[in-house]
Amino acid sequence: MTENTPFLLYLEDVQKQYGEKIVLDDIDLAVKQGAFCTVVGPSGCGKSTLLRLILGQEQATSGRIFMEGVPIALPSPDRGIVYQRYSLFPHLTILDNTMLGKQLSVPFWTSLRRKKTARDEAMHYLESVHLGAHAKKYPHQLSGGMQQRVAIAQALIMKPKILLMDEPFGALDPGTREAMQLLILELWEAHGMTIFFVTHDLEEAVFLGTRILVLSQYYRHESASRESSGQGARIVADYPLNTRKARSTRVKETAKFGRLIQRIRYDGFDPEYRQDAREFNLKHTDSFITFTE
């Protein structure tokens, strides 16, 4: 277990099956503190399943997952989550939603006593996502983008070791989406967070991440039959990205940006092109692979 301690998150030989169907196969992954790790892949490849395994919402069929060297079990405050929907509690105002973590993590009577400090802290976080003026409203009165900002503040107040985000901006319109991308980068820098970000949008993944993982079921494996489409997805590419993030979305228009997206599309999204499992583009320094038969 000592070998993985420099890593915040460490997955070893993780496999997930639903009944007979293998969804994820032989996932090896190590993520360092401070990384902004984005995950892309064709639809249905198990991106969200991988996230739920790390969250503890679902259990791996085999393999092990560690946080700071300790095996993870059920969902807990050291792993925050922002879903695409249902992150907020409909019966609480925006302020109450944000301070909920402070309240739930202590016994009921204590939470009543500490209400004032919790409220002040929640207000601070709400202001950092520019929602101070809406504290008294209920979630259904806010737009989709605003709701996601509350969800982020609500997760941040717990100071999680890693923030898991499952297509958090997937339901937003393009303008709101770019604003949210800049906001999350700002928060990531300000709080020194580690983020694990699942998205189906390649451009978003390349723009945000310091590291991009491509998860795909389109690859060749010597022991698998050639035409089997039932093989589980694996990490087929792992690239380091710009660690000093640009403050402008203009970078999306550059040629280099476009070439990388093309490359990733080729790596993971083309059912016709299958690379051999031994030739995956695992360029990131933290990436490793164990061959188990």
């Binding site: 969902p75 807990s76 405050p77 249902y86 509690f89 409909p90 973590g101 739930l104």
Partner: peptide, 27 residues
């Protein structure tokens, strides 16, 4: 009540008892 809502409460530090009586109860 969506599963996401319950998992979210757990990541906010709720106990199992807390999920039932402090998160779902008022809803």
């Amino acid at each position: 009540i969506p599963k996401e809502n319950i998992v979210k409460a757990l990541t906010l530090g709720a106990s199992q008892f807390g999920v039932v009586y402090r998160v779902v109860f008022p809803q």
